[in-house]
């Protein structure tokens, strides 16, 4: 099976997943306790008023019809009104998603980028000081709560050392770059505003560290243990017997085999970070979607909750699709044995 076939097949596979996801979100939105109609009309509404609004909102229809209507609306960008901001939920999310996306993507990128060499070094130096150091770092990274790390980072780097800005995406007085992707790092580069780029990057640094430490630790440990497993394999001995350089054996031969299980974790971590970035977003006053989602939950802002769920769900599906594509690229057996 060629790579293109594999890609198409994987893409087709994610269609039923998206469908299932939409059904699930729809059902959840219908079983959440509380009647949205009564909630909207207030306690003094008469039964006729309730029935009228119910008919208007289509809630008197059978569930499959409601689902079709709902899905049609969602696809068109009609995600309902937010009770809290009185805006269309879709536009609320569109305004906030890029901030969260920028934070998560940068976090994940650097977490993986650093986890690879650290994991390889720890794995190939098992039970030596490099390995112990990585173990302590991992323990710290996984067990320290993100918000606590965030606050400690602020105290050290902002309050004591004064090196980095405290919060937000840009300093006061720096105008956001012209919106293309709404990712400030990308937009500022497109516009050629390097000052803005540096400002955005320095604002990103602490939230990224706070958010990514746990993921870095997790991926690093996985790579380490997989590298240790790979080391015992015959092909590694063979490569050594052929006289290949160690670095080549470690980073090309072993890593490509060892990386597949970490890849799964990275895919899941992306979805997880999207939804769980709020702790860090709140501490750093980051105007992102995760924070919006938490506030929606606190205010029982029904439509907003569903909207955020949709986005996080799509994020998960997309991340897993990308992971599948990378699987097929890194490990040809995945696609060869399927065909």
């Amino acid at each position: 099976m060629s790579y293109v076939d594999y890609l198409v097949r994987r893409a087709i596979h994610s269609v039923p997943v998206i469908f299932g996801l939409s059904v699930l979100i729809f059902l959840i939105s219908r079983v959440i306790p509380g009647d949205p109609v009564r909630l909207a009309l207030g306690p003094e509404a008469t039964d006729q008023q309730v029935a009228a609004l119910r008919a208007e909102m289509g809630l008197d229809q059978p569930l499959p019809m409601q689902y079709a209507d709902w899905l049609f609306g969602v696809v068109q960008g009609d995600w309902g009104m937010s009770l809290r901001t009185n805006n269309n939920v879709f536009s609320d999310i569109v305004a906030r998603l890029p901030a969260t996306l920028e934070l998560t993507v940068v976090t994940l990128f650097f977490a993986v980028l650093l986890a690879i060499p650290f994991g390889v070094v720890a794995g190939t130096n098992k039970d030596r000081w490099q390995d112990h150091l990585s173990r302590i770092t991992a323990l710290f990274g996984v067990s320290m709560p993100r918000f606590w790390v965030a606050i400690v980072l602020q105290i050290v780097f902002v309050v004591s050392l004064g090196l980095l800005p405290l919060s937000g995406r840009l300093s006061d007085g720096v105008a956001p770059p012209p919106a293309v992707t709404r990712l400030y790092l990308v937009d500022s580069l497109i516009a050629g505003q390097f000052g803005t780029f540096v400002d955005a990057a320095t604002h990103l640094l602490l939230p990224t560290v706070a958010l990514g430490l746990a993921t870095l630790a997790q991926v690093m440990r996985l790579i380490r243990s997989d590298m240790i497993d790979e080391q015992r394999k015959d092909y590694v001995l063979a490569a050594r017997a052929y006289g290949l350089p160690n670095t080549l054996i470690e980073y090309k031969y072993m890593l490509q085999n060892a990386f597949t299980s970490s890849l799964t974790v990275v895919g899941l971590a992306f979805g997880f970070l999207l939804g769980n970035a709020f702790l860090v977003e709140i501490v750093f006053a980051w105007p992102g979607m995760a924070r919006y989602g938490v506030q929606a939950i606190l205010y029982q802002d029904f439509n907003a909750i569903v909207g955020v769920t949709i986005v996080v769900g799509i994020g998960f599906v997309t991340a897993n699709f990308v992971v599948d594509l990378l699987y097929g690229y890194l490990d040809p057996r995945v696609r060869l044995e399927e065909g």
Binding site: K233, D234, Y235, A241, Y242, G243, Q256, N257, L330, P332
Partner: peptide, 25 residues
């Protein structure tokens, strides 16, 4: 020693199923 390995003395591995790297052509 490294410079002699493979070039001067080489080795045929025992198990053909596991001695080739599965993810490279």
């Amino acid at each position: 020693r490294h410079s002699r390995r493979g070039k001067e003395m080489s080795m045929i591995m025992q198990d053909p199923m596991t001695s080739l790297n599965p993810v490279l052509t």
